[in-house]
Every structure is written in structure tokens, then in C-alpha cells.
Design a binder for these strands. Structure first.
Lengths: 181, 181
DNA sequence: CGAAATCATTTTAAGCCTGAAATAATTTTG
DNA sequence: CAAAATTATTTCAGGCTTAAAATGATTTCG
């Protein structure tokens, strides 16, 4: 089984990145990123349930409202959290029932519903947010400050690459709490 | 309201990492990672739906089975995908109905159900997997080979940190396809 | 003005996902 | 050997999520 003389010189012992049409490195990177996200997410879910008897979607939604003094519309929240409008409607329904969120039509435009945290909701969220920040720090404790910075920077490039590839068709930003810009 | 003279000298103009009890950097890192994961995931979901009329959970499950020549049990798949057993049962039900997966009790231990791809399932998966790899490459096209490697390494450290913090209570690895080790 | 287009939200139908309880099979051990 | 413990899976109730259709309100523009 001879290698034809016209074959590229790197049929064996070649770096993956040099194989044309091969994208195994990107795939492995994505799988590893997904593993990390999934591990973090499910750990946070578990702790929110055990310690506060609540869920991540509720926490995320409250986090968005907490950052806004004037309240947010359903559409704004849905863009921020990168979920559908219908989903926001559904999650808000639960928070309304628990008295954590208030919903009322806007004065100027009665199509839009303005969502705000109630006083109770604000209290509840702040207690959770403090613990949440600690949990995240704990999970990343194995990384030094320099590594955290480097990772943050590389993920910034990744985010730019994604927006480039997706073509800005979708917008909206993160979930869970706060922005990352 | 005077600052006591014993106060640390860095009450203002201090790096976040120097503020004791402050973990905003870790939080921002997590939010950025989550943004990236969510963007990739929902783009892949959309394309799987539009191009193959299927869903990510089904694709993920088939990806696991495709890697195993001898088949996998429900429990193995659930560990790999980091989802509950009940979830695997439910997703498998759909794949069974579509003739993509086969399920039969193991000969030696009749508690376990062995899952395998059917010939049709294997064909369908391979077509999807090829496209999938291309999509991922496209999404990461803004990163060079060195950056991909660096990111992969840092996420490896992150993964180790997570396992450390979570205490190996849970195990299991990634989702979507293949391993990242 | 008023019809048409646009926009924000809700509803609907279907599927995913979880933790906990139930079921069924195997292994351990007194 | 048989009761008890363990293990694998399924069932269940409840909540999340989506895309698409429906509803209701506002804006555009003929």
C-alpha cells in the first residue's frame, strides 16, 4: 500500500489542523465547553432548589428585573435571557403567583407589560444572589486570576465569532444574572 | 462617614481581585461562558430542526450510540449525557417510534436494556454528524488554531476545578457527540 | 380618517427535563 | 436458601421551552 507520489506529504503524522476538511478540534472544544456549562448549570440548579426552593429560570428572570429600576417589558426580558416570549410569560406567571413580581400594562403603550420585582421579590433575590456569587467563585476556585482573565478574553473572541457566524439574526445576551460586557 | 485609619488602603481604585469577598470576575466569566454555550446550542438546535427535522436531545443520544459498537444501557447513556434516566427513556421512546434505535433486554442481566442504532439510525446519524461538524467549525471560524488550543486547555482546567468543587458526587461527561478527553 | 402593516404579548401543542416514587431483577448476607 | 439490600429502569407530576397561531394595540400612509 504505497502512498502515491502526488499525495501531500502529510498523510501521516499530520496535525489535525492541517487536514483539510477536518474540524475535530473545534468539535472537541465545543464539547468541553458544553461539559463545563452543563456541570455549572446543574450544580446551580440543585443548590437553588435545595437552599431556596426555586428554579434557575426564576432566578434568571428576577436577576434581570433587579438590575432595572424602572422595570422591563416582556420582550426586553426575553431578549436578555435569550428565551422565547411565551416562556417569559409562563415563568412570570409563577413569580406573580408567589408575589415576587408585579406586572402592569405600560401607561403610554398598552401593548407592553411592564415587569418589576416586588419588595418581597427584591429581598428574596438579594439573598439568593449573594449565595449564587459565592457558589460560582467556589466552582472556579481552581483557576487563578490570570487564567480567569485569559479565559474571559478568549470567550469574548468566541462570542464575537459566534455573532459573526450567526449573522446577528438573533440578538440578546446572557442569562442567569448581569451582563458580561 | 469617615474611613477608619485601619481600613485597607485599597478602598477605591482597587482591582476586583483584591477586594476580599468579591467574586465579580468569576461571575462575569460564567455569564460569558453561558452566553457562548447558549448561542451555539440554539443555533445547532435551529439547524437540526430546519435541515433534519430533529432535535438536539435526539442527536445527542444517537451520537452516544454511534460511538459504541456493542450498544449502551439506559444508565450509561444517561451518565454520558448528564441527564436523568427518565429522560433517556422518554427520548428513546421517540427514536424507537421512528425506527432509528433498537432496545432489548440484556441476555445476562434482564434489568438492563441495551440500546443500539438501527441501520437506518446509523445512516441518518452519519449524515447529520457531518453537517454538525461543519456548523461547529463555522461558528468558531473567528478563532485561530492557537486560540482554540488555549481555550481548550483553559476549559480543561475549568472542568477539573468544577469536579473538585462538586466533589465528584456526579460523574458523566458531555453531550452532543463524542468525548472531549 | 381608516385600512393595512407592524408590534407586543399570550395561547397552544408538543417535546424536554427533573426528582421522587414505583417496579422489577439481581446480588448480598444471615 | 430466603430476606434484605442494591441496581436498572420506568412512571409520574410538575415545570421549562419552543415555534407557530391567535389576539389585541399602535403606527403608517393612502
Amino acid at each position: 500500500m504505497e502512498i502515491p507520489s502526488s499525495a501531500p506529504l502529510l498523510d501521516r503524522e499530520t496535525k489535525a489542523s492541517e487536514r483539510p476538511g477536518d474540524h475535530k478540534d473545534e468539535l472537541r472544544l465545543w464539547l468541553r465547553m458544553l461539559t463545563c456549562s452543563t456541570l455549572i448549570e446543574s450544580e446551580i440548579r440543585t443548590r437553588l432548589r435545595e437552599e431556596f426552593k426555586t428554579t434557575l429560570p426564576r432566578f434568571d428572570l428576577m436577576a434581570q428585573l433587579e438590575k432595572s429600576t424602572t422595570g422591563m417589558t416582556v420582550g426586553e426580558v426575553s431578549q436578555r435571557l435569550m428565551v422565547s416570549n411565551g416562556n417569559v410569560t409562563a415563568v412570570v406567571a409563577g413569580l406573580l403567583a408567589d408575589g415576587l413580581v408585579d406586572k402592569r400594562p405600560a401607561a403610554q403603550d398598552r401593548r407592553v407589560q411592564v415587569l418589576t420585582l416586588t419588595a418581597q421579590g427584591r429581598r428574596a433575590f438579594r439573598a439568593m444572589a449573594e449565595r449564587h456569587e459565592g457558589w460560582i467563585a467556589e466552582l472556579f476556585a481552581g483557576l487563578g486570576a490570570a487564567e480567569i482573565g485569559q479565559l474571559f478574553r478568549l470567550l469574548g473572541q468566541t462570542k464575537a465569532s459566534l455573532h459573526q457566524a450567526i449573522g446577528k439574526r438573533q440578538n440578546g445576551t446572557p442569562a442567569t444574572a448581569g451582563d458580561d460586557e
